[in-house]
């Protein structure tokens, strides 16, 4: 009888199923992203079993590109990805090292290579996450030191595939341009994952989860107000999906605290301390200022 292997059981016992489930539970929306992560996990699982059973196997390249608007969860997912790849034995340690251009590129000749290498070394065994990767490349300046960082990255991405996974992230249009001018990156990255904007309903759900994590909740009317807030906020400048929600909630808590202090007789119950009421949301400037809050802090 040919050797058999219980793939599903391995999936459960390796802790991978658990991570994917938490990912599903804690991250709202992002269906296409979750789908790709599941597929990647399945592939790695199958590769591992093929290896155990002595079949030809080739460790897949897992360098990735995350594109999407601000606050769509790229950094959050990259973090989870590091843990997941660790559970799948794809990376040895599973840390996430998050960098931007300034961490990699130096100020003068001879400064860039050591800087880039230092971070690469810290990321080995884990994931190197390069946010807004297109800033590495400045087409109008051929002497830019970014090019040097790019070359070192390309070399390590190619030669040390077993030692680290590189994830590039940024806004879709600019990343597309970046790949056009840097075919080396494009060819080394097999997985392009696009992070869609959240729908209003998803953002509301995210708001509830965020509040819940801080042991607050909306009153029914406040929840409706939050729904209106999201609709309005979306049309205003500097909208950053889930991050805008997080910021809005921080300010909502300010107003909530202030209301408790300033109104009534000052006697509060746990119920009052943890319930966000309609005015806490409605008194935001987002409602009063319509669409013209550019450059101003949106409160």
């Amino acid at each position: 009888m040919a050797a058999t292997f219980n793939l599903r059981e391995a999936f459960q016992t390796s802790g991978v199923a658990e991570i994917l489930d938490t990912l599903d539970r804690e991250l709202i929306g992002l269906a296409p992203v979750k789908q790709r992560i599941r597929e990647t996990a399945a592939l790695l699982m199958v590769e591992r079993v093929r290896k155990d059973l002595g079949l030809a196997h080739e460790t897949p390249t897992l360098h990735m590109s995350f594109t999407g608007n601000p606050g769509t969860g790229k950094t959050t997912v990259a973090n989870r990805m590091a843990g997941l790849l660790h559970k799948l034995n794809y990376v040895r340690k599973g840390q996430l090292v998050s960098v931007t251009r300034d961490d990699l590129v130096g100020q003068y000749i001879g400064h860039t290579a050591p800087k880039t290498k230092e971070l690469l070394k810290k990321a080995m065994g884990g994931v190197l996450f390069i946010d807004e990767a297109y800033y590495l490349y400045k087409p109008d300046n051929e002497r830019d030191y970014g090019q040097e960082a790019i070359e070192i990255l390309l070399q390590v991405m190619e030669n040390q595939r077993d030692d680290l996974v590189v994830i590039l992230a940024g806004y879709a249009d600019r990343m597309a341009k970046f790949y056009e001018s840097n075919p080396g990156f494009r060819s080394r990255i097999a997985h392009h994952i696009d992070f869609p904007d959240y729908t209003d309903a998803e953002l509301l759900h995210i708001a509830e989860i965020m509040l819940d994590q801080q042991s607050y909740r909306f009153s029914p009317k406040a929840r409706d107000a939050m729904g209106d807030y999201i609709k309005t906020r979306r049309t205003q400048p500097h909208f950053a999906n889930a991050r805008s929600i997080r910021n809005a909630l921080d300010r909502t808590r300010l107003r909530h605290a202030n209301r408790l202090l300033e109104t009534g007789d000052g006697i509060v119950t746990p119920e009052m301390l943890s319930t966000v009421e309609e005015p806490d949301v409605r008194n935001s400037r987002v409602f009063s200022q319509g669409g013209s809050v550019e450059k101003q802090t949106i409160a």
């Binding site: 070394k121 810290k122 080995m124 040390q160």
Partner: peptide, 13 residues
């Protein structure tokens, strides 16, 4: 080298 997680970085050096 401080704060390395894995020997691969040292091996590279």
């Amino acid at each position: 080298m401080f704060d390395l997680k894995d020997a691969a970085g040292v091996m590279m050096e």
